[in-house]
């Protein structure tokens, strides 16, 4: 307990789109839990509205969306827009699926974080979220008004 870590990272893990299996999302959720994150798991077929609604109630640091339906160019921008409109712009939006590099670049220009393809080592994902959330918390603290 002497080197108690800072507050646990809270992350919402959701499966978006209409395809009906969430094994991948569950594997990621378990890996993030084992890395010491508090993972709010919301299950299958989540719409952008449902994802953002839950993320704001849970006051998460990050959202991880698993998406294999090919609808990434619609769903990710919708989530980003809703987050901005409802005061959640500091929340990191990341995720995974089969997303062409060109699309990933366009999404990042819109404010989406890094996206991870199948077979990415989970440790890489954990490290990315840790670093990114730490930076965002730092920025939040320096601009927060009491």
């Amino acid at each position: 307990m002497t080197d108690a870590p800072s507050l646990p990272i809270r992350i919402l893990v959701a499966k978006a789109g209409l395809d009906g299996h969430d094994r991948g999302a569950k594997v990621v959720a378990a890996a993030l839990r084992d890395a010491g994150f508090e993972v709010i798991y919301t299950g299958l077929r989540q719409t952008p509205e449902m994802i953002v609604d839950a993320a704001l109630q849970e006051d998460v640091d990050a959202i991880g969306v698993s998406l294999h339906s090919g609808a990434h160019m619609t769903l990710f921008p919708q989530i980003i827009e809703l987050l901005k409109a409802r005061g959640g712009e500091q929340i990191l939006l990341t995720g995974g699926g089969i997303i062409p590099a060109d699309d990933a670049r366009k999404l990042q220009e819109m404010g989406v974080g890094s996206l991870f393809g199948p077979g990415t080592p989970l440790a890489e994902l954990v490290e990315y979220i840790r670093t990114e959330v730490a930076a965002r918390r730092e920025r939040g603290n320096s601009t927060a008004s009491p």
Binding site: A35, G36, E38, I40, Y41, M50, D53, A54, Q57
Partner: peptide, 25 residues
């Protein structure tokens, strides 16, 4: 590890988007 898997929302999805319900895990 201090980590946790909070899965209760999965059973409460029908209330998603309802301003009269607030769920916190």
């Amino acid at each position: 590890t201090g980590g946790a898997l909070l899965g209760d929302r999965v059973r409460m999805l029908t209330h998603s988007g309802d301003e009269g319900v607030f769920i916190r895990s």
